[in-house]
Amino acid sequence: MSRVPADGLRNLQGEHEYDIVWPWTKPGGLRTGSTAVLRVKNEARSLPFVLPGLLRVCDKVLVVDNQSDDQTPEVAKQAAVDMGRGDQLEVLEYPFRVARAGAEHLAEPELSVHSLSYFYNWSFAQCDTTFSWKWDGDMVLTAEGELAMAEFGWRSFRKDVILKFPRHGLYVESESRAYLDLSLHNAEGWGFPIGPEWTYTKSFEWEVRRRPEDTVDAILPRGLCVELKWLDGDEFGHWTDPESFATSARNARKRYEWSVFNALSAGEVPPELIQIDSPEGTHVIDYVTKTWLPTAPRPLRPPNREPQPTD
């Protein structure tokens, strides 16, 4: 769609309960603040690590569950209650099968309830704050990341700005051992205003967020966030198949992650990864995000590599 209908979107299947009403057109409009919006499927194992940091720094966390069968919604609620922040969490259900990234997504019309872009638009239409974080159910903030997210959230008030920062792959082998990948430098956009110029549209393999012409990119430093990859899990199940990320330059990161994941699964540690063992009694994810990464010498870089300007 080149133009976004001001009165919202109606899906092709006639599921009117899931038609999209833009939040800025709802009574009361948007309130000042930030919401982390997580679209999740079977993230019960990751959410207890993901949610505490988000709940500490965002006004609200919205978890949109899509057909999980591992009690993801219950785990999310429990994590918030355990922190005494149950009132900041909202859990919603999106009950339709969503196309996987790649060929399946490409074949799906944009206004289908099965389309990734429709799913994203519906999810973000449930957000009633002026700023949003597009967050994944396996991304864990570090201690420094929490501060940065809180700070840039309010400093971006009424600005056309995209907040970008790199995420570092953390391949989790066990409760006490993981492999950290500091070799990738690309900073993706995670923080966006909510408004008519910031909706989603369909791209080739996945959805993309629109942006106004004069948008500013704010690039935050490395070391703010890790992306969990459970070595005994299905980390590529949201893709149609490996062929879907086999060729395009857009998917270079995914191809690289696929190669690293398979190497580790086969018992081989790629030289650019850092093996981290946590002290007894501390989960390795907590150790990496609360201690190891925040206090690691800067510039952050993989072993045996010269520092880069963006380190």
Binding site: F152, A218, I219
Partner: peptide
């Protein structure tokens, strides 16, 4: 100015 200052301060 608050965002402008923070963007510079975020640089390595």
């Amino acid at each position: 100015a608050w965002l402008d200052a923070a963007r510079i301060a975020a640089m390595p």
